[in-house]
Design a protein around this nucleic acid. Structure first.
Length: 271
DNA sequence: CCCCAGTCCTGCGGGC
DNA sequence: TGCCCGCAGGACTGGG
């Protein structure tokens, strides 16, 4: 999302922020739109970056929009899949052009907040968010995994332990690392931790390169409304009963951990 | 500390 | 065909 919108948006000036009228229940936007308008009009977009699973748009005032897309939210520069779920529009001008950026969200679980620097530090600081999954060192994996006896799949979803891994990629990472998702985090062996470290980078970087996973509902799109293609590389996610692509010896199994689906190979992840 | 269920929403696919 | 149910890329809260 960030790579898609950055070149078009960075450096432009904010002309206005508008709620899109749609019949569905409104998403969470903080503070009120009036305050956002007052605080941001005329500010320049200094930089756009990713913070774990959030998109951050930093303004020249020092305030930042923090967008949390959750399951079905998207940042779009072009026509949405369904205009009924457009939630917020940023109108921008500069370089002799006008353009809009939209937040689109079908389920409406996503959020948009405008935060000051100090609010950022408390709301998104180390007490709420661990190190980014792509920046975790092996030593950090070791020390952080040692601190909890939870099942490793469940621990990977704890954003305070490591930030940026979601349910789909947790299954993919553990399969590539050949780690049993029900293994206790603090009982992982050094070689397993090394594989976890390497597999996390491998899976997430590939997923980014292929612009994410567009699942069966077709929702996820990049900034230009194009589908991602990493779903074609899924090893286990949503592949229950298919033969494991690694060992070819057992069908992928689906279990539920912490009320969420986990997919794994009972053969190569339980040796 | 950890676990679990419930909550916020909308849509889809399966079973009957 | 149509209805009901469970489930879905997430995160937070309250009770035990």
């Amino acid at each position: 999302m960030v790579r898609g919108i950055r070149p078009s948006i960075e450096g432009l000036e904010l002309a206005g922020v508008y709620k899109c009228r749609c019949q569905c229940k409104p998403i969470l936007i903080e503070p009120t739109l009036r305050r956002i308008q007052r605080q941001t009009r005329g500010q320049r977009v200094v930089t756009i970056y990713r913070l774990a699973k959030r998109v951050v748009i930093e303004l020249s005032s020092g305030d930042s929009f923090v967008i949390e897309p959750r399951m079905t939210g998207m940042m779009l520069l072009s026509d949405p899949p369904n205009p009924a779920y457009l939630r917020l529009e940023w109108r921008l001008r500069g370089n002799g052009t006008n353009r809009s950026l939209w937040f689109w969200d079908r389920r409406g679980l996503g959020t948009v907040r405008l935060l000051s620097k100090s609010e950022m530090a408390s709301v998104l600081g180390p007490s709420r968010l661990g190190p980014d999954a792509l920046a975790m060192t092996l030593d950090e994996w070791k020390s952080r995994c040692a601190k909890t006896g939870r099942e490793i799949k469940v621990a990977l979803l704890d954003q305070k332990l490591v930030a940026g891994i979601g349910n789909l990629y947790a299954s993919e990472i553990l399969h590539l690392a050949k780690i049993d998702p029900t293994a206790r985090s603090n009982e992982l062996k050094p070689r397993q931790l090394r594989r976890l470290h390497a597999s996390t980078a491998e899976i997430l970087n590939s997923a980014i390169r292929y612009e994410g996973s567009t699942l069966n509902d077709g929702t996820y799109r990049n900034a230009l409304n194009k589908t991602g293609s990493y779903q074609n590389s899924h090893r286990v996610y949503n592949r229950a009963d298919e033969i494991c692509p690694t060992c070819h010896k057992a069908p992928i199994q689906r279990i539920v951990q912490a009320q969420r689906s986990t997919f794994f190979c009972p053969h190569c992840q339980r040796v």
